[in-house]
Design a protein around this nucleic acid. Structure first.
Length: 450
DNA sequence: TCTGGGGTCCTAGGACCC
DNA sequence: TCTGGGGTCCTAGGACCC
């Protein structure tokens, strides 16, 4: 058995923990750059504010109904998320963190008769310890647990719902579920399935898996089997990321290459830090820039460039140099740019390297922690790589201790430190007018109680 | 005026091998 | 006029998720 634990209106709930007056009031949280509405309280949902709606289209509605608006605050949400996940780990070691606001937990060896009661207790504890309300769906497979969670959330059921595959209620439930509401089926595949006469969850459950495979892919076949209680998607442990992307839309359109470089350099620094945090090296970095695709009257342009490294790296300087070269290749002065980003890919795990111990010249990976450049003299290369590594680690440590950006790279822009407010002259900085504090991660932003 | 960001997996097709 | 068969690996693009 699996349980899916999903936080209710997660971002809104995070804000409410620190502003209890927001309870029972309509609240929304915006995406980066204050662009779209990506989280809504129940009250906001019932006003008819759809998920992912562009903010500017709903501004009047929000204003008229006194909806409270927040910019997204991922520092806060990320920290609240790990608190919730830590709670789950108290109840069982079998936890798969699936996204910022949900986790699957394995219930092997649990007694089915007491399962619902146990999950209710867990739900209450999480609420007590973190202030975050969650819903729990329990079933034999992940796909069914997703469905159970949907019931738990939308029909209350005290926030916990278990699917019994043999009950007639499952037939009713699947029969009332549109094909696109099944986990893993979205619009495109939904349309394809409808074209061969499958339009409800029940019809999908009862169809021939091979036929669905022909229509979609093996992914579809798995879904059919999962709906029939055959688990095809096991619980997975946390793995390092296979790619790391950092991209942003700009607060204002920008034209000059120096601003673009500054923005991209900042994204690269962020990505490189993430890379080192998960002890990976990257083999290549992809840089992209694009104009505003919504500005139909403007000429559109988007382009990208990949830089590969002879030797996988986690050195911020190397990455910055690579994106600088890439940017020069793709930049065209006649356009106004709206978004840019970078992607680190071909990630490999860095091994702890040392010249001593049992490592010999024949064991290059042991010495370097990676596959080194064939054409460099080994010992000189070793010294160089390790010198760079110590340097980068020192910068990381200083920034950890004294705050992010205490030491920064020239390419990030020297005005950086003084541009804290949204009056900033740095025009690529994203909009964030309604951001709350980093209550749980910064001493200078602790909640004040008077 | 204003339209997010960050991931994974699968498949088809091309390039290569013998 | 006629031009094989059987593989692997890599990548781009398309689908999905939150």
């Amino acid at each position: 058995m699996y349980a899916l634990v999903d936080c209710n209106n997660f971002y809104v709930s995070c804000e409410r923990v620190f502003q209890p007056a927001l309870e029972k009031r309509p609240v929304v949280v915006l995406s980066n750059n204050d662009g779209c509405i990506i989280a809504r309280s129940d009250e906001a949902k019932s006003l008819g504010v759809p998920m992912g709606a562009p903010m500017f289209k709903y501004k009047n509605l929000l204003k008229k109904n006194n909806v409270i608006i927040y910019s997204s605050n991922y520092t806060l949400y990320g920290d609240m998320s790990s608190r919730v996940m830590d709670c789950l780990k108290i109840f069982t070691p079998q936890v798969e963190v699936y996204s910022i606001d949900e986790a699957f937990i394995g219930l092997d060896g649990a007694n089915n008769n007491t399962l619902v009661e146990k999950m209710k207790k867990m739900k209450e504890s999480i609420n007590q310890w973190t202030g975050i309300p969650v819903s729990v769906g329990i079933a034999e497979t992940k796909t069914l647990a997703k469905l159970a969670n949907h019931i738990a959330k939308n029909y209350k059921e005290e926030g916990v719902y278990i699917i019994d595959r043999n009950s007639s209620r499952l037939v009713e439930l699947l029969g009332n579920t549109e094909i696109e509401d099944i986990w893993g089926i979205s619009k495109k595949w939904g349309a394809r399935l409808r074209s061969i006469g499958i339009s409800t969850g029940l019809q999908l459950q009862r169809s021939d898996p091979r036929r669905v495979r022909q229509c979609i892919s093996i992914v579809g076949e798995r879904i059919v089997r999962e709906l029939n209680g055959v688990s095809c998607l096991p619980l997975e442990s946390v793995q390092p990321r296979k790619s790391i992307m950092v991209s942003r839309s700009f607060g204002k359109a920008i034209r000059d290459v120096s601003s673009l470089k500054e923005a991209i350099s900042n994204y690269t620094v962020t990505a490189a830090k993430k890379l080192r945090c998960q002890h990976s090296l990257c083999g290549s970095i992809y840089t992209f820039i694009q104009t505003n695709r919504f500005n139909l009257k403007d000429l559109q342009y988007s382009n990208s460039s990949v830089a590969s490294f002879n030797e996988p790296t986690q050195d911020t300087f190397k990455l910055l140099k690579a994106v600088d070269i890439s940017l020069k290749k793709i930049y065209r002065p006649q356009f106004e740019y709206h978004k840019a980003g970078i992607i680190l890919s071909q990630l490999t795990t860095k091994i702890n390297a040392s010249l001593s111990e049992k490592n010999t010249a024949s064991n290059y990976k042991g010495i370097f922690g990676m596959q080194p450049d064939l054409f460099l003299v080994a010992y000189e290369n070793y010294k160089r790589v390790h010198k760079r590594e110590r340097f980068t680690n020192t910068i990381d440590k200083i920034n950890e201790k004294l705050g992010l950006g205490t030491i920064f790279y020239g390419a990030q822009g020297v005005e950086k430190k003084i541009q804290k407010s949204h009056k900033s002259k740095v025009n690529w900085r994203m909009k964030s007018y309604y951001r709350s504090s980093a209550y749980t991660t910064r001493w200078d932003q602790l909640l004040r109680v008077s």
